[in-house]
Write a protein that binds this DNA or RNA. Sequence first.
DNA 1: GCAAAAGTGTTATGAGTACACCCATGG
DNA 2: CCATGGGTGTACTCATAACACTTTTGC
Lengths: 230, 230
Amino acid sequence: MSGNQDIKVSVDAVVFGYESKKYLSVLLIKRGVEPFKGGWALPGGLVLNDESLEDAVERELKEETGVAIDYLEQLYTFGLPKRDPRNRVISISYFGLVKPNHFKIKADTDAVDAQWFNLNELPELAFDHQLILDTAHQRLKSKLSYQPIGFDLLNDEFPFSDLENLYMTILEKEIDRRNFRKKMLSFGIIEETNKIEKIGSGRPAKLFKFNKNKFKQLTVNDFHFEINFV
Amino acid sequence: MSGNQDIKVSVDAVVFGYESKKYLSVLLIKRGVEPFKGGWALPGGLVLNDESLEDAVERELKEETGVAIDYLEQLYTFGLPKRDPRNRVISISYFGLVKPNHFKIKADTDAVDAQWFNLNELPELAFDHQLILDTAHQRLKSKLSYQPIGFDLLNDEFPFSDLENLYMTILEKEIDRRNFRKKMLSFGIIEETNKIEKIGSGRPAKLFKFNKNKFKQLTVNDFHFEINFV
DNA sequence: GCAAAAGTGTTATGAGTACACCCATGG
DNA sequence: CCATGGGTGTACTCATAACACTTTTGC
């Protein structure tokens, strides 16, 4: 019952980014060692003896990709005996989001081969990483409806159309713009700035801001965020 | 980055039971070894090298309590370096439910000291087990509203009042009986049996049954279960 | 016939849904 | 003045919420 357990502990992160009006992206790294050398995988690695799981994820992300993360939560722990072909390694997976601002991959690191992939054009992934990714994608889809995490995929100030498009892209649904805006604003957690963004053609858009503090206040008094459309 | 990682992997289970019209119970065991020898803790233990995490939980539950579990899902992984005072041990926690039928604790086992505790009258718990328990309690509360897991806390056939009381107990809310019944039945996942239960005083109650297959069918076609009352 | 719990229907209110035109800008 | 995307209001429908009396049994 003790002494001879031989299991390694690793963390892996599924980090999503959103390119305005386009698609979801996922952060992957090219493996430099066997197994699956040269293949693509989620950023991650073994946990050090004296660091917390969260610290491990953040360290690995920094080392392997240099990307700064805006939202991070634990996803699920994958532990089938054969998920790593060599040793037994269980993986505590994390789910992360980054704002477009923080997309930049720094090249000053070990495993230089970090890259954003369109979620619809993924390469084959090492280990059970496709399963982990699917789990994260599922989590993103469902959380979007009952927690205001979408804002961590947008810059601090954003035009309303970005928010609309984000929801439509992730939920893979058409959403009525008027109803969406009405409901979003009704929560009272989005503020209008007095800035205006002019890009491309068409009428310039007002910029809005998510008021995180307001949201936290409301949450205390059994306030419920929910966005659900047919 | 490899070779000298020294972290043990354990599983722990928070198993809830419901005593009709009374209260929620949690399954605990009395520890036979240090640390916290003689104290109460969640059932669990180290994962064996060649078993899956789920197998480990089920094995430990069987060994330590003899209780057969009706619902089991992964809860959260706790991994702070100091959560175990001696070695580093991360714990993958699970969330379980048992029907009243299966409450019996078999005494033919190692750690004989397994016992059900009223959730409102808990002893002090070993390690960070109170935190794990709180997390599980939270999960139970929130899942009850959007997944039909309440049925795994009742016998296969139950009077409607049991279901009502279960929801009121767990959600700590008064619920209008007429509206509750109307909504529950409207999902079409509960069947009336032609049995009747007479107990104590008052009018005897019809017994109902949860139709799991019907529920699964519906789930495929974007059916959404949700019970929310003010 | 009294106590205890089971069973049942209607109305009012508010949230969700469907739907289409005008506005501001750049070229 | 045309193309492009931003910004806005109303009416209908349906789900939720509030609410109280009757029925069946045991004692």
